[in-house]
Every structure is written in structure tokens, then in C-alpha cells.
Design a protein around this nucleic acid. Structure first.
Lengths: 117, 117
DNA sequence: CAATATACATTGACAGGCGAGGTATATTGT
DNA sequence: ACAATATACCTCGCCTGTCAATGTATATTG
């Protein structure tokens, strides 16, 4: 893992909801797409992934159903709900706000610049 | 609190180290400066703040000493160490990388655009 | 027929954030 | 004189999210 998990912590739900905005998908594939998008730099651990699905379903942000594959392992598909879309929109806004706030806060404190205003 | 704490989680140490890059400072004042920088949108809870100081000191990123105020409440000042500066630099890089990664991951999955390449 | 990939799931430990509570000093208002 | 507020420090114990470890079942590949 290249990126510290604590930096992503809090974005897991947003990342999953984003993956479901286009079309329904199942856990294993969602995680693969995350690995692809980040060129292997990041992946959700399975325990984290499935915990998040339970949490999001409990909150009414997603619903789930079993796929009807005739072969291979069974797949549980997830669908984003209207509440999930609302939540996603809110989370995106919060991210934009948090991002600029963190940027402002982690700049090194330069006293000379500070004094010059 | 305007911003969900989990979005900041993982940045607490970076924020504190950044505040100490310019000059030594004490806890209460550090937190005030965070509130000012964010126009009151964010502050570290005291328990979080002092936990972080212990953690950073334990890790050798900061050292501390008591101020010599002749009046008012006592102040424990913190000074960033060489290791702290190295750590800070690393954390800043990680943030840049995490930021672009999250941006990539939380974009809504648009199938039509996806197919067009 | 063993190894690997796909695909799901749970348990228990761990770490960070924080509400609640505590200590002590100085100033301000009445 | 005295209460309230501001400054300034600190700890305990709960809560939540992450994740290593472990387990299940099916299909493919060497």
C-alpha cells in the first residue's frame, strides 16, 4: 500500500457511492475498479469493503440483490438509492470544503511572510 | 463543527507540525490559530490536541518545555525536531498524492463517458 | 488434482477522535 | 467580595472505522 489508510479514512463511503452512480455493481468488481483507477496504488481491504456495504445499506444509501449468474461464484449487486445520491452530493461538497481547509492548514507557517501580511 | 472529523482524521499530526515549522508554540495558541485560519469552521478538540502532542513527542517529532511566564496559566511549548521536519515533508507529499487519488476516485462513474474513453 | 482466481462474509484487535470531567491562574463585571 | 469567564493544562473511557486472520464455495489452469 502506497497511501496511508488514515488519509483515505472517511472517504470510503464516498468512493463506493461514486462507483455506483453509473450502474449497479458488485463488491469484488468495485474493488478491482478502484485498483485500476489508482494504478494499483490503492485498494479497499475486503473487511473494510464489506463493512462499508453493511453501513451504507443500513443507512439506506444502497440496496442489494443477488445476481443471476449461471456459473462462477455468486455475486451480490449493489444499487444506489435516492438517499444515496443525496448523500453522495453532500459528501462531494464536504470533500471540496475539507480539501481547501486542509491545504490552508498544512502549509508551513512562515513567520516572515506572516508578519508581512 | 462544519466539517466531518473523519475527513480530517489522519491530518491532525500534519496540521500541528505545520503550525510548528515557523516557531515554537503552545497548545492553546496552536488551536486558536487553527480556528482563525479556518474562520471558525474547524478546531481540534482538546482531547484530540493533547493526545496528538503525546503521540508526536513519543515519536520524536516534537519536544516540549515549560514557558517562563511570570503571570497567567502555565504554558507548555512545543518545538519541532529534525525528525519532525522530515516527517512533515513526507506527510505533505502523501497528502498531495492522496488528494489527487481521492479526486479521481470520487468522481461519479459516468458510463457513457467511460465507454467513449 | 493442487494451485489460483473469483466472490462472498465475520470476528476480534487496534488506533484515533472526543465527550465528560478535572486542575489552576488571571481578569472582568457587579 | 465574589461570581463568571478566559486562559491553559490534562486524563479516562467510549465509539467508530480499518484490517489481519480466518472461513465458505465455485471455476479455471497447469
Amino acid at each position: 500500500m502506497t497511501i496511508a489508510s488514515d488519509l483515505i479514512r472517511g472517504h470510503t463511503d464516498t468512493i463506493i457511492l461514486a462507483r455506483l452512480m453509473g450502474e449497479d455493481n458488485y463488491g469484488y468488481e468495485i474493488n478491482k475498479s478502484i485498483q485500476q483507477k489508482t494504478d494499483g496504488k490503492y485498494e479497499l481491504k475486503e473487511a473494510t469493503l464489506y463493512t462499508a456495504f453493511r453501513r451504507l445499506e443500513g443507512a439506506g444509501c444502497i440496496s442489494s440483490y443477488w445476481g443471476d449468474e449461471q456459473t462462477g461464484a455468486r455475486r451480490r449487486y449493489y444499487k444506489i438509492t435516492d438517499k444515496g445520491r443525496d448523500t453522495y452530493a453532500t459528501l462531494i461538497e464536504e470533500w471540496a470544503s475539507a480539501k481547501s481547509m486542509i491545504d490552508k492548514l498544512i502549509e508551513a507557517q512562515d513567520i516572515s511572510l506572516e508578519r508581512k501580511g
